[in-house]
């Protein structure tokens, strides 16, 4: 590396060789070893500018800004789109099927246990009475 090359890198990237592009490190280190006084002077001058630049402290993040940014962040993921539709449709169909099945069972049970009307009961009793009367009177058997 030439003196001009070394100075150009310091001028562009500053006085800390660790911040120079990595592909120049070996050559720059060799130059600094060969010309230590020159290299030290170039680096020191660049480092003074770096130090001045670093005196411009960054702006602190205010609480209000931080909370506004956080508040705009994505909400916890919920089922969306097709997945949610399938889930809801499945749940709905299941609920509807359960209702239908319950209704059918209810109808069947009600038919099985509901007593026949009072009129039918009386008619049946009278018919049996007639049959018994016939037997007693020696009619048929």
């Amino acid at each position: 590396m030439t003196r001009d090359g070394f100075e150009a890198l310091a001028q562009a990237y500053g006085g800390d060789m660790a911040r120079w592009p990595q592909d120049h490190w070996d050559e720059a280190a060799l130059f600094a070893a060969q010309q230590p006084d020159l290299a030290a002077g170039v680096l020191a001058a660049a480092a003074r500018l770096d130090e001045a630049l670093d005196a411009w402290a960054p702006l602190a993040v205010s609480h209000g800004l931080r909370e506004a940014v956080v508040a705009a962040a994505p909400a916890p993921r919920v089922r969306r789109g097709l997945t949610a539709w399938i889930w809801r449709a499945g749940a709905g169909a299941g609920l509807a099927a359960a209702c239908a099945a319950g209704l059918m069972v209810g109808v069947m049970l009600s038919e099985a246990v509901t007593p026949v009307s009072a009129d039918e009961t009386v008619s049946a009793s009278l018919a049996n009475y007639d049959d018994l009367t016939g037997l007693v009177n020696g009619e048929g058997a």
Binding site: V69, A73, P74, R77
Partner: peptide, 14 residues
């Protein structure tokens, strides 16, 4: 994790 809405990840990224 931010994409899943993880509040801790949101604050970490911020």
């Amino acid at each position: 994790r931010v994409a899943d809405g993880d509040p801790a990840a949101v604050r970490a990224l911020v």
